[in-house]
Amino acid sequence: MKDIAKLGMYLLIVCSVSGISLAVTNHFTAPRIASEMERRKNEAMSDVLPAASKFVKSKTHEKVFEGFNYAGARVGYVFETLASGYSSDIEILFAIDNEYIVTGVKVLSQSETPGLGSKVSGDEFLKQFKGKSREKIMLKKAGGDIDAVTSATISSKAVTEAVRSRIYEFQKDTK
């Protein structure tokens, strides 16, 4: 009986110490991590909608930011959307102008195959979306204008479809 209690106590102590150290580390890193994510998001939003200088969360739609220029006029919308990639969820940030033409696409996070699917985060793939309307945003194999990343069709398709369907939903909603 006593040995069982001893085992329990030993693991209790080890795990408690572990818990405390993790809590402490988290306490010190969480603000940095959170602010980095925030900064990235703002930077990313400016990246995808360069004409805008200020972003305001939309009151009418979820996960949509409206972008305004210095003069206060709305120049476009920024969307956060999630694509189901090959091996992970791909967090996408993209923007369209008032005519529903894409002004930029950015990948915030993904865990696709390093070196292959992960290239959907790259400029080479994403720059293709600029200036295209929803109809053209499909893989070339399906009749659209987007070249998939070599050997990463699933990841490429996921991103493409996510952007396209989001624009479609939004267009339906606002027309």
Binding site: D3, I4, A5, K6, L7, G8, M9, Y10, L11, L12, I13, V14, C15, S16, S18, G19, I20, L22, A23, V24, N26, H27
Partner: peptide, 22 residues
Amino acid sequence: TFIIPLGVLGLLGLAMGIGLGL
């Protein structure tokens, strides 16, 4: 925010230790 990790892991440890002992 320190109580929860401490509590969760601590209790888990205790439970595992006793479980292994039994």
